[in-house]
Computed example of a mutant assay.
Amino acid sequence: FFLLSPIYSFFQKKYFPYRNLKFDLSIVIFTFLIIYAYLIGFVPSYIRSLIMLLWGFYLISKNIKLISFVNLFLSICICIALFPRLLFSVGFLFSILGVFYIFLYLHHFSKYFKPFINILLLNIWTFFAMILPVIYFFPLLSYQQILAIFISIIFAIFYPLALFLHFINEGGLLDDYLILFFNFKLYAINFKIPFFIFLAYILLSLLSMRFKILALFCISLNFLPFIFI
C-alpha cells in the first residue's frame, strides 16, 4: 500500500480526483493476496486471515465496528462455507483461537495501557493462551517454547530482511545463524492432557468473553504445565 500510494496519488490528482485512493488500492492489494493464497495452496491459517481481511474491509466501508466476537464468528462461518475441509484442520482451529484470544485481550484490557505496552502484553497474552490447545494436539513441552514470545517480534524484522536479501541474490547470508538457532535445544517432556480438560478450557474461554476475571484465570491455567518440566 505504501509503495503504490504515491504513484497512484500522482495520477489520481491529475486524471481522476473523484476516485477513492484507499478503496482502489485495497482492491489491487486484495487481488495480489488472493493470487498469493493460490500460489501457497490455500493454507488454512492464511485463508482465515484473508477472509477476515475482506470481511473487515467490508465492515469498515459500511462504518461498522470491526473488532467484535460476532464478526469473528461470522468470519469462521464464511470460511467453512467456502472451504468445508477447514472443519478438519488443526491449523485453522489454532488460527481461530489465536484471533479469539487477541480479541479477548482487546475486549477486556487494552483500555488500561498505552499502545506500545499493549503490543508487548498482547504478544505474551496470546502465547500463553495457546499453550493448552497446542499441547493437546502436540504434547511436547519445553521452556524453549517461551522463546516464541521474542521470536515473533524478531520475525517482523527478519521476514522482510530475508525477502530483500533474496531479491539481491544474497538469500544464504543468514543461513549460518539460522542453523545455530535450529540446533539450539532445551530439555523437553511429553505432556498429554485429556480431551475433557481441553474442552473445559475452550468453554471457560468462551465464558470469559463476559467475565474479565475468568479471562485472567484461563490464561493463568497455561502456566501449570511448565511446573512439570
Rank of each mutant, 00 (worst) to 15 (best):
L199P: 07
I179T: 15
I219E: 05
P194D: 09
A200L: 15
A215P: 04
F196T: 09
L206S: 08
C218M: 15
L180R: 12
I179K: 15
S205E: 03
L186T: 07
L180E: 08
Y201F: 14
K212P: 06
R210M: 12
F217L: 12
L186G: 11
L199F: 15
I213Y: 07
Y201L: 01
S205F: 04
I197S: 02
I219P: 01
L214E: 02
A215K: 02
F191N: 08
K192G: 04
N183E: 07
Y201W: 03
L180S: 12
F195E: 09
K192T: 10
L204M: 14
L186M: 14
Y201D: 01
L216D: 04
K185V: 00
K192S: 09
L214K: 14
I189G: 05
F198A: 06
P194G: 07
L204A: 12
C218Q: 06
A215L: 01
I213G: 04
F211L: 05
R210K: 15
I197Q: 01
F182C: 08
M209W: 12
P194W: 07
A188Y: 14
N183K: 06
A215I: 05
I189M: 03
I189Q: 06
C218T: 15
I213T: 10
M209F: 14
L216H: 03
I193M: 01
N190Q: 10
I189F: 09
I202L: 14
Y187W: 12
N190M: 10
F198L: 11
Y201S: 02
F196N: 13
F196D: 02
S208M: 03
L203H: 07
L180Y: 14
L180T: 06
K212C: 00
S208N: 00
S208P: 01
A188Q: 15
F211E: 03
S205D: 02
I202W: 11
R210N: 15
I219H: 03
S208C: 00
S205W: 00
F191Q: 08
L216E: 00
K185E: 00
F198T: 09
L204V: 12
I219D: 02
S205T: 02
F195W: 10
N190L: 07
F181Y: 12
F198Y: 15
I189C: 11
F195H: 02
I193L: 09
Y201T: 07
Y201H: 11
M209P: 02
I179E: 14
I202H: 10
I197G: 00
K192Y: 03
I189P: 04
C218A: 14
F191L: 15
A188D: 09
L186Y: 13
I213K: 13
F196E: 05
F196K: 05
N183G: 05
K192W: 05
L203E: 04
L207T: 05
F184I: 03
K192N: 12
L186Q: 13
F211Q: 07
M209R: 12
N183Q: 06
A188P: 02
I219S: 00
M209H: 03
F217D: 01
F184M: 13
Y187M: 13
A215G: 01
F181L: 14
L180P: 03
